[in-house]
Each structure stands twice: as C-alpha cells, then as structure tokens.
C-alpha cells in the first residue's frame, strides 16, 4: 500500500510539471492581454504588473463585425448540415439501403479531404457564381466538411438507439419522417449536441477557406487576428485580448463534451 501511495505522489508531481508546461503559453497570452503596451515590450520580462482591461475594451470596439460574421457563418453552416445531414444519417443508421456502407464511407472520405486540395476548386466555382466575398460562399464551403461530419457521427448514434422503438412507431402508423421527428430525434439529442459542437470547433477555427473566400466586411475572427498582427505589430495587448475572446467559446464547448471528444475526433473509430 505504501508503495502505491508513493507512486501516486510521483505521478501527481510529473502531471503538475506537464500541466504547467502545457498551460504556460495560454497563461502567458492571458497576462499579455491584461498588460499595458509598456509592460509587454520590455526586457527583463515583467512577471508582475498592474493589470488593465483596456485591451479588451479596445477589441470590443473594433471587432463586432468579424465576431458577427463568425457567428453567422458558423451557425448557418451547422444548421444547413443538420437539415440535410440528420435525415440522411437516420436513414443510413436505420433502414437497409443498397450501398449503405459505400455511401457512408464516401461521406467520411469527404471529411478527410484536406482544405488545400479543395480551395482552388472552390475559388473557381464560387467565382463563376459571383459569390466570392459573401458570407454565403463561406457557409457553403464549411458545409462541405460539416455535413459529412454530421452524417457520419449521427449515423453511429442512431445505430445505437434500439430499433424496436422506431418499429413500434412505424407499426402505429407513423411515416419514416414521423418516426424520425417524433421518436428518434428527441432520443438523439445528446448525439446532436456532440455533433454540433464538433462542427462548431472545426468551423469556428477555420482559416484557409476564410482567407480566400471572404472580403474585408465578411472576414471572420481568425482572419481579424492575422490582420491585427500585420497592421499593428506592437499592439500585442489587443492581439492577445482578441485571441482570448476567440478561443473562449471553443474551450467552453470542448470541455463540455470532453468525454466524447475522442469519439468525435476519430469519427467514431474509438468509443469512449
């Protein structure tokens, strides 16, 4: 017993060091966001300083439009993906359909396509439709990975709900759509939440599509960060404040579903 206790102490010791190392960059960014410019660009480094919220005030004044763009683009791409993806996932997980596995794997492979292989194609496509620079074309670009993610994750989830429940509904005279809306979907709420958050993380953080497909008034938060950095190279306080604001929602939602994160990120290959 004594040996085990000692082992636990050693493990906690190492975990403390590791956690400190991994948290340090974020800690450092938070302190930067609370510093005045004169406290940021000094040597030796100021570990203690008088904190200020001026940087946040500055950012809140400058960033409403990109923030709004990010919210609109994220919300709509997730909504569209759900509207089309949920029925598809339900059908794939529930009914015996020809080539069911092939269809599912095709969706999976679409998610895995790296953005760099698609961006030129998207540019040509949206340019020919005169959609470049609008929020709409960015939403559509994001649907191309959110939709497969929804289909694949939710198919998995619907398969886990006992079949008998829908069968009872179908026998009672429900149409497939009826049993989907009234029976399966309410039961699948936790799965919908996880799929939604996974989409949120990928969409909110995306950069490559956003930088190519948007214009000045439709740019999203990650782009504004890059812009801040290029334009005001010394205003690190504001850059850090904007960065912290950008990651807050993602970190919040991520921790909310941390137990299911593995399953989401490995697309159901590993169960939690």
């Amino acid at each position: 017993m004594k040996g085990r206790k000692f082992k636990t102490v050693v493990i906690i010791f190492f975990l403390c060091i590791i956690t400190a190392l991994f948290m340090f960059p974020i800690y450092w960014f938070i302190t930067t966001s609370l510093k005045q410019t004169k406290d940021i660009w000094v040597m030796p480094i100021k570990w203690f300083f008088t904190p200020t919220l001026n940087n946040y005030a500055e950012v809140v004044k400058n960033a409403p439009l990109p923030f709004l763009n990010s919210v609109i683009v994220t919300v709509f791409s997730i909504l569209i993906s759900f509207v089309f993806g949920l029925p598809c996932a339900y059908a794939l997980g529930r009914f015996s359909i020809k080539y069911k596995e092939n269809i599912a794997v095709t969706f999976l492979s679409q998610f895995m396509l790296p953005p760099m292989a698609l961006i030129v194609a998207f540019y040509i496509f949206f340019n020919s439709l005169h959609l470049l620079g609008t929020r709409f074309n960015l939403i559509l670009a994001y649907v191309t990975f959110d939709l497969p993610l929804v289909v694949w994750l939710m198919k998995d989830y619907f398969e886990g709900i006992p079949k008998e429940i829908d069968e009872a509904a179908l026998v009672d005279g429900c149409s497939p759509f009826g049993s989907f809306f009234r029976v399966s979907l309410p039961l699948a709420k936790p799965g919908v939440m996880v799929a939604g958050i996974m989409c949120f993380i990928f969409t909110w953080n995306e950069y490559l599509y956003a930088i190519i497909l948007t214009k000045r008034n439709t740019q999203t938060l990650p782009l504004l960060l890059g812009l801040f950095y290029r334009q005001y190279e010394v205003a690190w306080g504001s850059i850090a404040a904007l960065g912290i604001i950008t990651i807050l929602p993602v970190v919040f939602f991520g921790i909310l579903i941390q137990r299911r994160l593995v399953r989401g990120l490995t697309l159901g290959a590993l169960k939690e």
Partner: peptide, 17 residues
C-alpha cells in the same frame, strides 16, 4: 480537463501566441 485545452485553441490564435 486542463490538458485538453490546447487542442481547442484556434490555430490562428495558437500561431500568434
């Protein structure tokens, strides 16, 4: 909980940090 945070950080933010 703490150790999963870096994974959530927006790549652009991570770059600047």
């Amino acid at each position: 909980s703490l150790l999963i945070i870096p994974m959530m950080v927006t790549p652009a933010v991570s770059a600047l940090l």
